[in-house]
Amino acid sequence: MKKFIGVVIVGMLLAGCAPKIGSEEWCNAMKEKPKGDWTATEAKDFTKHCIF
C-alpha cells in the first residue's frame, strides 16, 4: 500500500511540472509531439494559443 501511495504522489508531482498551456514551452512541446497523438482539446488549445 505504501508503494501505491508513493507512486500516486510522484505522479502528481510530475504532472505539476508540465508547462502551462499556451506558454512558449508548451507550444514547442506540441510541435515536437506527433499530430496523430494530439487530443481534440490539445489541437484546439494549440490553434488558440500558438497560431493566433
Rank of each mutant, 00 (worst) to 15 (best):
A18Y: 02
D45A: 14
D45W: 11
V10H: 02
N28C: 07
E24L: 13
G22Q: 08
F4Y: 05
E32A: 12
I51C: 04
N28W: 08
C50T: 06
P19N: 06
G36T: 13
F4W: 03
E25A: 13
F52A: 01
G16V: 11
D45G: 09
T47Q: 12
K48G: 03
E32C: 02
M12L: 15
K33L: 08
L14C: 14
L13Q: 01
F52T: 04
P19T: 08
V10K: 00
K48C: 01
H49E: 14
I21H: 04
V10M: 12
I9P: 04
G6Y: 03
A15K: 02
A43D: 14
W26T: 01
I9R: 02
K33Y: 06
A18V: 08
K20C: 02
D45T: 10
V7F: 07
E24K: 15
G6V: 03
I51F: 06
W38D: 14
L13T: 01
L14M: 14
P19D: 03
I51S: 04
K2D: 03
K48Q: 11
K35L: 08
V10F: 10
E42M: 02
C27Q: 06
M30Q: 13
A43K: 15
K48A: 13
C27M: 12
A18P: 00
C27Y: 09
E24R: 12
L13N: 00
F52I: 01
E24N: 13
A40M: 14
A15H: 03
D45N: 15
S23P: 10
E42H: 03
I51N: 07
G16K: 03
E32H: 03
A40H: 09
K31I: 11
E24P: 10
V7R: 02
K33R: 09
L14R: 06
A18L: 08
K33S: 07
G16N: 13
K44D: 14
V8A: 09
I21C: 02
V7I: 08
K33H: 06
V8Q: 01
C27F: 09
L13M: 13
M12F: 15
K35H: 05
H49Y: 15
K48I: 09
L13H: 00
F4D: 05
M1D: 15
C27H: 11
H49I: 01
G11I: 00
I5L: 13
G6I: 06
F52W: 05
